[in-house]
Simulated scan of single mutants.
Amino acid sequence: MSQSVRVAVPRKGRPLEAVLERIAMVTDAESVVDEVISTLRHEKAITKGSIDPTMGVYERLSTISTLHDEYKPEYTLRRDDRPGMPRRIVFDTLTIDISGIPVQLIGREEPFRALRTHTFGLGFDSADLVLEEVVDLRADGIDSIDEINARIDPMNTDVRVVTGLGDTVYHTLLARPDVLDYDVSLDRSFIIEYQGTLCISPRYERLVEAVLGTYALDDVSFKYPHEEQQEEAAISNAGVGVYLTVTGSTAREHGLVVGEELFPSETVLMQNNAETTAKTDRVRDILATCEMEEMMTEINTQSLDANNKTTE
């Protein structure tokens, strides 16, 4: 068998599911992808206490891991940060054939940092981490995945973002109605004029600075939720904040106005430019362009259907 291309992926959660779904789009590995997603969702439910396990964690691990066949998934254990720090089964590795190239997906706690240290040539991780670690802070902010690479200092890292996977939730502006004038929109221009506290998660401080820009934050001070305090409740107390939202329904339940979607929190495909080969380039291109190919196939199918209806 030819040498495999190693790709760093998250060990669990929405980012890993986004990666596996992208893999399923370009291969015939739908069944094994579904198996991994289903297994990890089941293990998450056990860790959260939603399901009572019928076996101990080590027995479950030995049952679902297949060490003698690299084309079947392997799992490993990690300590979850929930109360009691239970052991949680997470993804470890799986080899998938992509256009005749064996691609080994390898779970990492921090795939982006594994790329930065040149351990991998390709990998997937949250765009948030790129903003938090290597994007330059400038007076003006950014609002799309496409703008990230222009803000990365080439002396800082060889890693670049290739594309997003579309598993998007947004860092969104939220505010109490009484903080806004009746004719003012809750968007970036509001923050430029705003003076006061902005409630955010402490781990997103640098991300928010990169997204909004340092100029908009000149007269703004960050405030953080108290331990175990719900973020929407903390923002309601502070008046204005930034939080990840999907529909904004929970924010509205706390009496908040849902404003501009500032930046997509999205899983991204990345490459280390210093570690590329012909094989990694081929795998990268397949993973990055499959969405466009699917769209074109759908458009062509719709056009064909329309033509058939015209001639009937």
Rank of each mutant, 00 (worst) to 15 (best):
D143S: 15
I145Q: 04
E147Q: 14
E147P: 08
E147R: 07
A150V: 13
A150H: 02
P154I: 09
M155L: 13
M155H: 09
M155Y: 06
N156W: 04
N156T: 12
D158P: 13
V159R: 03
V159D: 01
R160C: 04
R160T: 01
L165Q: 00
D167L: 01
T168C: 06
T168E: 14
Y170N: 14
T172G: 10
T172C: 10
A175V: 10
A175L: 12
L180N: 03
L180A: 03
L180T: 06
L180F: 06
Y182T: 15
V184Q: 12
V184M: 10
V184K: 15
S185K: 13
R188Q: 15
S189L: 04
S189A: 13
S189Y: 08
Y194I: 07
Y194N: 03
Q195M: 08
Q195H: 15
G196V: 08
L198Y: 04
S201Q: 07
R203Y: 14
Y204L: 09
Y204W: 08
E205V: 03
R206K: 07
R206F: 03
L207E: 08
L207Y: 00
V208F: 02
V208L: 04
V208H: 00
G213L: 13
L217G: 05
L217P: 02
L217M: 07
L217Y: 01
D218T: 13
D218K: 15
D218R: 15
D218C: 12
D218P: 10
V220D: 01
V220W: 01
